[in-house]
Simulated scan of single mutants.
Amino acid sequence: MGTSSAYGGAGGTTPLVPSWLRGEGDNAGTDGGAGAQPAPADGRVPTAPAAPAPLQATPRPGASDRFTSARNNFSRFTSSGGSDRRSLGRAVSQYVSQSAGGSRQAAQRMGSSRGAAAGLIRFLNDAGTNGVREALRTLNLDSLAGRPVEEVFAGLADYICPEGGSIDEGIARDAFVETIADLAGAGITDIDALTPGQIQTVFELYATHAIEARICNDVGAKLITLPADPRAAERVQAQLRDFIQRGVSDAINAAGVNIQSLTPNAVIGFVTTVYQSAFEVLQTMGEGEAAR
């Protein structure tokens, strides 16, 4: 249920959206045009004091106990071998509403996973429009043309989600690796003939794995008691993943967007919207499970 980047869990006072957790689209560029002083008529370049560095907003700390309920319910669910669905529902809904501070901030916490999902969609759309060989050529990955789909995706990893030292970057890369492992089972075997529906499936798989890893890392894999029976542990993981995938699928379908019609600049907004909607759906689904 954890990933290779799993750790002891975030502290309660960790900011809801840490300042280092930035995904694609979070940084605004500057152009130096606004506020520039015109040169005087004699051609001398005016000397102006250096502009002060922009103030950085201090991330708002979370409540010290905001992870407690979600962790306790995750432990109850896992120790039951997956039979305690009410605890699963409570854990997921409490994670979104309490631990993450709501669906909007939960989506912001996806950081690198948003950028990676956007990069993946852009590549697949480019491949669908201009052909896989040309899409790979633009990334200097010509040697992957004609290779099996898993090899192509593995070769894309350093472009889509380069390795880094942060947990956020580790989550993005682990989710990509998990997605590659799922391609054959999803019937995606020919990257040269991807349909719009298959591109949506790839995105759905990636977002599911990323959200699962984000929740497990935030709640703290080492603080959750897993069943000693490997088969029970597999059932727990499968149920959690299925629960999350249903939420992601509903969010993508509710968006009603043909992914292949998105412009490159529109992709990151679409990805962020889907993540936020998915967390909203998961909170609602969790509350429904808890009330049964």
Rank of each mutant, 00 (worst) to 15 (best):
T284P: 00
R66H: 06
V45P: 00
A186I: 01
A70G: 07
A51S: 13
P196Q: 08
A106S: 11
A266P: 01
E178K: 14
F279A: 08
L144P: 02
Q245T: 10
E163T: 13
L139E: 05
R147A: 15
R133W: 00
T3S: 15
S277K: 12
E280G: 14
Q98R: 14
P38H: 11
G111W: 05
N130W: 00
G155A: 09
A91V: 08
N217A: 13
V149L: 12
L183E: 04
G25I: 05
D218P: 07
G25V: 03
R246I: 08
A254R: 14
Y7T: 12
Q239D: 09
Y95S: 06
G25W: 04
S83L: 12
T272I: 03
A107C: 03
G247I: 08
R231A: 15
V92C: 01
N253P: 00
K222P: 00
Q37V: 14
G286F: 01
G35T: 07
A154I: 05
G288I: 12
F203W: 10
G220I: 08
L282G: 04
E150N: 14
K222E: 14
F176R: 06
Y206V: 00
R241Y: 05
S75M: 05
T30F: 11
S87Q: 03
A6H: 12
P18V: 05
T58R: 13
P46E: 10
I215Q: 02
V202F: 06
P15L: 08
S277W: 05
M1C: 11
A233S: 13
Q260R: 15
L141N: 04
L156I: 08
G25T: 02
V219A: 10
T13S: 14
S87E: 05
L144M: 08
G115F: 03
E289Y: 14
V92Y: 00
T58W: 07
Y206R: 08
A290E: 09
M110F: 09
G32M: 11
R173Y: 09
R86F: 01
L156K: 07
E280H: 07
E289G: 00
Q94G: 11
I215S: 00
L16E: 04
A172W: 03
R44Q: 15
I188Q: 05
Q56Y: 11
V267R: 02
Q260K: 13
L194T: 10
M110C: 06
A175W: 01
